[in-house]
Design a binder for these strands. Structure first.
Lengths: 342, 342
DNA sequence: TAGTCGATGACAACCGATTGCCAAATTTAT
DNA sequence: ATAAATTTGGCAATCGGTTGTCATCGACTA
């Protein structure tokens, strides 16, 4: 067998090999594979058979170079090791894969400069980008979005399609939850100053607190890492509040650890609310009351929105905003306010 | 100013634009940028200035196509959402970035087929790959390694460079730890059957148990996910052991949760040892005794080994094996064996 | 039977770089 | 001053596809 096979060296097959094997031009092979209707069904079948026989795998570089489309989408996150992004990444990965795209994951290290250079880099090597929790200014983001298709997650900039996770509304729920437990002196443990989510959440919280007539102050900012929790815990204790709403679960969990070290009981002496319901929030000690949202779904939606931008053919107007619902998940880290006020 | 600038449209600049601006050939620009010595220092400076002025960014696709080198390295992990891989990924990412490479992260979904096809795919689009916790057979892995530069993590296949995390030796430590606490009936909660780490660890453990004359049995296999912990916990309880060594922390943490639900106290009624010291192992309830190793460093080492393969120029023989030390971290999930034997 | 049209496939330019080869320019040696 | 040895820079092929243009062919219409 295999008498027809001319020179099956070890080098991967190209469309030229297929063309030679079938006695047609390379362009015909290209069309047969990408625009099947443009080619006679019988030649197409011959070509497909030859392709299979030679284990043909298209060279994505070459394809990208000549067509201008790379088949890749960049996904930028500030910190890969932050569990919050795991599900997000998984969501984008699954959805991109289903659509035949490749995911280029980039860790921007919580830095606006790294993020900007990554965007610039990706401009050549990706068809579009998804930017989670951008640290860029609104203007920079808008400028970037004009240069290449983009969807942001948790950045609300007019003119830039976005998936927003509705933590502000959940924050109000959290506040009501704490108020109903008798807390009146509450702290918000803020995230990075460059984080839009943090500032948005604080403004919502401050407004809600005023309406309800309770004392809510902002402490921080704190880096969104578990280690920052120690400083946050100390700040909270020192400020005399009885409950805290943390920027995210990482900080909240760090606080839990620190408070335990200091012998301060949660929730008896201090209630803690986190945000994101990350891996670990359900099994820490005590389990964390937190604001949960469908993160993986947020990733999928972001991909859908981006792909709609890339292939405008399919009907349906392009959504430019998508709000993901968020709800409060009550666990063991919140409880009645201590009776003895200090 | 900018009178010389001919047609600075919005399209990114190419070497041809630079060439035109400097009045030299495109090839000279290419050389000036990649082989500076091959070009007169004065023209080089002019070219560099022009490049900066035009915000030139080389097109990686084109570069890859003509040079054969992509400047990218594929990193394959079975499950992105498994916290164990976070630090690994971060390690590879940092080291690759430092060397000017791009990381292509792929989630192989715990499937050998997905893994195989990813390897095939990456053959064109990456210069080399790093495969963590491969689910491929030894033969398949060896065959793949012959086709392209590769470093595995936790796969011990002769002929394939590998970084091995020395959990077997730590497993013996864990066993001794449990024995010293008085345990004599111990279970190993096995991971996936296709996981080499799991089988290697079990054989080490079985050998050590025989030497020491204690009863260690293998239960499972269990998927390396937190949900599997429930089944694992029930199996352990049913088998009548007083201590368990779990394939990884995910299973161990899942067991902790399940045991708590069933009212079985840890460590009073049952001791649990995990493996990997993942995010969460220190703050679960009780904190998990586990086997820790420098995962991020493992990622860095894997990258170094791969880059040594890619650029054999630099002196120093290529290491083909690297063993990462592991140690037992004792926390609250292990304690003395219950006095009343059932 | 002549004329028209759609389907099909081949040719060739092109994407943006790299690189082998050669010629011109410059330096050095004689 | 001339020849030889080096630099230095340009031409053109190449990587592996995509895509616009055009010739060919058969079928259908008039």
């Amino acid at each position: 067998m295999a008498t027809t096979q001319p020179a099956a060296v070890d080098r991967p097959a190209t469309i030229h090999d297929i063309a030679a094997l079938c006695g047609v031009a390379a362009s015909t092979v290209s069309r047969a594979l990408s625009t099947p209707d443009r080619v006679n069904i019988r030649t197409r079948q011959r070509i497909e058979a030859a392709a299979a026989q030679l284990h043909y795998i298209p060279n994505s570089q070459a394809k990208a170079l000549s067509s201008g489309r790379t088949g890749a989408v960049g996904v930028l996150v500030p910190d890969i090791t932050n569990p919050f992004y795991f599900d997000l990444i998984r969501g984008t990965q699954l959805q991109l894969k289903a659509a035949g795209y490749t995911q280029l994951l980039v860790d921007t290290e919580e830095s606006d400069e790294v993020e900007a250079s990554a965007v610039e880099q990706l401009r050549k090597s990706a068809d579009g980008i998804i930017v989670a929790a951008s640290r860029l200014s609104d203007d920079a983001l808008l400028a970037a979005a004009k240069k290449m298709p983009m969807v942001t997650i948790n950045s609300d900039v007019s003119g830039v399609p976005a998936v927003l996770i509705d933590t502000p509304s959940a924050t109000s729920q959290a506040l009501d939850h704490l108020i109903s437990l008798g807390h009146t002196r509450i702290a918000y443990m803020a995230g990075p100053v460059t984080s839009q989510s943090s500032t948005r959440r604080w403004s919502t919280l401050a407004g809600a607190a005023e309406e309800r007539g309770v004392d809510v102050r902002s402490l921080g900012p704190f880096a969104p890492k578990k280690q920052s929790g120690a400083a946050a815990a100390d700040a909270a204790v020192h400020s005399g509040v009885t409950a805290c709403i943390a920027f995210n679960d990482l900080i909240a969990i760090g606080m839990l650890q620190r408070l335990r070290e200091r012998g301060i009981r949660v929730p008896e002496d201090m209630s803690i609310v986190g945000c994101d319901d990350i891996f670990g929030a359900d099994f820490c000690n005590p389990p964390l009351t937190t604001m949960a949202s469908p993160i993986e779904q947020a990733g999928r939606v972001a991909v859908s929105m981006l792909l709609a931008q890339l292939n405008p053919l399919a009907g349906g107007g392009i959504r430019s905003r998508s709000l993901m619902p968020t709800h409060l998940t009550v666990r063991g880290s919140t409880g009645p306010a201590p009776i003895v006020q200090r």
